[in-house]
């Protein structure tokens, strides 16, 4: 299936229009108790962006998410390279990774909280356990499909494991690894937010949980809207980069 980028842009715009339309219709059906119209939500979002109490929370979430993402990527790549290069390690550990992918990680939250205590580190840890597994799995698969001659060349030249990863594995398997990073990016974001919803006094997730408690529909709507917009936009951008990479190879 080949679609040009122009087609894709048009499809995206149509989809956005349809979704906004559905939102408006739903608002007409349900009314003010539970929903706000798109226009009101945009208005409140603008107000929120202008208010002083919003920004410290955003910074807090951004820090937690950034840290979690860095740790997920480094750990995921390390695990992926190890499992991808060693057949035995792969046979032993890959099923463990696949199974742990299926566990509802939200249930592990109490354990993490008891281990790390309330605050930043628990949030980061929660983001990491969500993000690291897909990155590791995608990387393992990507490394396993690298042409053997590249690896042999590296070994002949006596590269150290670190050089091997940096100069051969990463460039050779980049498009596939990047697909994993894209999935890892969104899961880390979800994990961090969930972490904030349960045990935090700051951050977007905390604001959302607080808004649920206070039945502040305006706040719930605009936070949901912003999160969806951010996650969707990031995903679309990463997907476009990934497509370009795949075309080049």
């Amino acid at each position: 299936m080949k679609t040009s980028s122009l087609d894709r842009l048009r499809n995206g715009l149509v989809l956005l229009l349809v979704l906004t339309g559905l939102w408006q219709v739903l608002y007409w059906c349900v009314g003010d108790v539970a929903l706000r119209s798109p226009l009101e939500t945009f208005g409140y979002t603008a107000y929120l962006l202008g208010s002083a109490r919003f920004w410290p929370n955003l910074v807090e979430t951004a820090q937690a998410f950034g840290l979690a993402l860095v740790i997920s990527v480094v750990m995921g790549l390390a695990i992926g390279f190890t499992l991808g290069l060693s057949r035995i390690a792969n046979a032993v550990f890959e099923p463990v990774l696949v199974s742990s992918y299926a566990i509802p990680k939200i249930t592990l939250y109490p354990i993490l909280l008891l281990m790390f205590g309330l605050g930043m580190s628990a949030k980061v840890a929660f983001g990491v356990i969500h993000g690291v597994i897909p990155i590791a799995l995608f990387t393992t698969d990507a490394v396993r499909h690298i042409r053997p001659v590249f690896l042999k060349t590296g070994r002949t030249m006596g590269l150290s494991p670190l050089e091997m990863a940096w100069r051969i594995l990463l460039p050779a398997a980049m498009p596939e690894i990047f697909a994993g990073l894209r999935v890892g990016f969104s899961l880390t974001l979800i994990g961090t937010l969930l972490g904030e919803m349960f045990a935090s006094q700051r951050g977007i997730g905390y604001l959302l949980m607080n808004a649920i408690g206070l039945h502040n529909v305006d706040l719930i709507m605009s936070l949901t809207f912003m999160l969806t917009l951010f996650a969707g936009a990031a995903s679309v951008i990463l997907l476009a980069i990934n497509r370009r990479m795949q075309q080049r190879t």
Binding site: R8, L15, L189, A231
Partner: peptide
């Protein structure tokens, strides 16, 4: 038209 939605769906925090 739905393709972009499927591609980004799991990036959206549904719990929100």
């Amino acid at each position: 038209a739905l393709d972009p939605l499927f591609a980004t769906y799991y990036a959206i925090p549904v719990f929100a």
